[in-house]
Design a protein around this nucleic acid. Sequence first.
DNA 1: GATTAGGGTTTG
Length: 838
Amino acid sequence: MRRKMTSISVILVVDSSIVENKREIQGISPCCLTQSILEVMPVLVVKDGPGPGTQVPAQLQRISIPLLSPTSDCTGKTVMGRVVHKGPLVSMGEDNYVLKTVIQEDSQQNMSPEHSSINIILFGALAKDYSESVSQGDTLLVTGFTVGNSPTAQKDKLHACNLQLAGDDAWMYVWPSTVSSRASVSRKRTSPASTEVTKAAKVVKYTYVPLSDLTPGVVVNVYAVVTFFKQPFRTKGTDYCSTLKITDQSNKKVGCTIFCDKLEEHPKIFKMGDIIRLHRVKTQLFNGAISLLTSHGFSVVTFDGMVGSPVVPRTSSGSFKFGEEDCQVVEALRTWAANQSLVPAEPCVPLSAVQPKTYFDLTCQLLAKAPVDSSCTLLKVWDGSKCPHPLLDVFVEPNTLEGSPTLSKDMANLTANVLVYDNHVEVARQFKPGSYLRIYNLHAVPGASRLPSNDSGQSDQMGHLGFHLHGGTSYGRGLRVLPEDSPDILDLKRILETFSESDINDSSMFEVWSTPPESFGTAPDEIATERTCDHTVEQVSLAEVKSRGPPQMFHIQAQLKSYQPQRLYQSLKLFCHKCKTIRDVPDDVTVGGLFSEAQKDVGPCNNGYWTLVLPLPKEPPSESPSRTLTLLMSSQLMGKGKAKELIFLKGATLEETCRIASAYSNIVPVTSPQGTMTPMDLSAPFLFRGTKRYYGCKQCSQLKVGESLGEGVEVWDEKSVADALGVQLLQYGLLMKLELQDGTGSLEALLWRDAESFFHVSAEDAAADQEAQDRVQETMDRLCPPGSSTAERPWMDLCLSAYTVEENGQRRACYQICHTDTRGTNTHTHPHATPSDT
DNA sequence: GATTAGGGTTTG
């Protein structure tokens, strides 16, 4: 290998005052030369040189690509590799460029690309120089870089880090792969405009001006990072207004005012740090500073600002231009912003970290809402985290409440009550329970405020945290719905899901049951249950039950040690008689979600049904298009004058369906995905009858809507409707696991087959009726008073069936409580009802 | 067709 270099060619300079772009320098010692040239030129091309590495300043130390990590110390380090990809030069305005390239370390060719190949992001003049002087196949040695996390690592399967080269410290050496490849670069350089021109003829190319280069009175396009924003608010004029502050790599901060009468055309900004692209904004001098204002033809697109998240444009415009270059600009801005401190300390705080008297942003799910008065609305929300401070409960009349706050979440300190005032009421009016929200600049207020529907003063709630979204827009106060696929919401959903799946053995999480017991007057020697079986077997101890084993019937006397689930609504199950599977009853938030999903199907239904389309009044101001409700009735039933006995409903929300179901006997929610009417996803109820909902088995149903309906059906009830639709009806049941104990040991027994008679409650009623659920709760409280010691719990006479189940080839003894009823719970009186003497 | 707002904690 030749050790001596004959000549080097220096192409391109960073300093525009040096006009000469290409110089041939001969006869000078390369080492001295590189040292001096480094002062002014970022890209050195070594022509006809020897093997790379010989003329690099000795103090630089090479670091192997696989060893790079974000914590690597980069001072005085170099990285070397062959160019395997060279991206396009992206212009961000005058003299501001970004370019992405990939190099591979040659000695590591046998290694997988995720170790040996790395993305390099070049900024500014360096990017432009590189674009014009480096080709694929060339060998690079870079220095003065910073190491960041590669946002595209998952996608491109390259190194988890990237190298960023920007500013005066960044340099590189280039060894062209062949002379001919260099020749082509030279050709390009003699007519630099030619390729640009051909491109320009095909696509409209937007030029983005750095914020520092803005001059008053012109219309420009800009790309920037949002450092402050207000959600759109009503002006005194005809439009909504969004107020923003933005910045970019030029570090200039610019105010921006967006006027637009349509809410959906405002920038969709979710948090500080989001990236924004503005087209056709007008510069204006205000208070001595440049600001940006919407001008004719204005359009906006925004992006999540997190390094590594997918570059998905957020816009309502159907005709916006977005290409690979935009991706690169967004990624460059993200990377740049990540190294600045543009965004103040994390304003998003979960309920578990809220400090009283502070202002914070809350990402949450709306459980329920209720109007309080004309200038105040109550939102009941949760984020799955438990607030360490007791949360204020706000009572409102149940009939004013939209959605279903589950009492247990209230009791477990999971529900935050948010009062939104004034201008925010109008925004909150459009929110649907189940949707995901972000509330900006929410005020955590300790101490109970005067609350509606409660004149007793809430002295018992002194010091409890309430949340106020004050009127006005100072500090970005406001709130908005976040789309379900945004990264923060995906995180939140995961949290909420684990929550609903988790087995609540953790009593510290749920304090539902820690409230002091009501006085039940239960004497320890009272027997709380009675056997109803007609066989007579000897009463035995639990130890004996275990030693004798299945199959057998036992009579025992025991106390309740514990039970599951603690959240009683979780004991409600749906059972399929055909496939014998048991599933959970979905909660309202889930069902509501299925309904909103089905609402997206706005296509027509062509199946010969008599159809009534009801346009719904648009709720102003609305981001969503206007909706219609479609009622479909069977022509066949119509002929018999029975049309109203079975109504199919399309396009309704869950609430609307419930409301309509209260007035008609059988409501079947439907969609029409292929233009043919069909029941909704069987995760949702297929039938509403009054307050009752009926579900079908996904596995065993064979839907057959559209054919002739129920020949010979006299009475339309859940069974005949299910038959007519080909639905395998699921039956409600109650399933609990009771841990029993006596002096000889403990034993787990299920309560399932005879649970309804045990509680004197029908499971179907319990699913629809809070009072029936309360009755189950009271029974459990009687058998296992909250906070009670074992000695205080009543004894139960129980009939126990022992049987064998086989699981994974293993046989196991199971016990089920049967033929046993609780005593005295059917004389239940509702606390608000007049006591009776029954 | 011009106008709106132009960040900076509250009535509750």
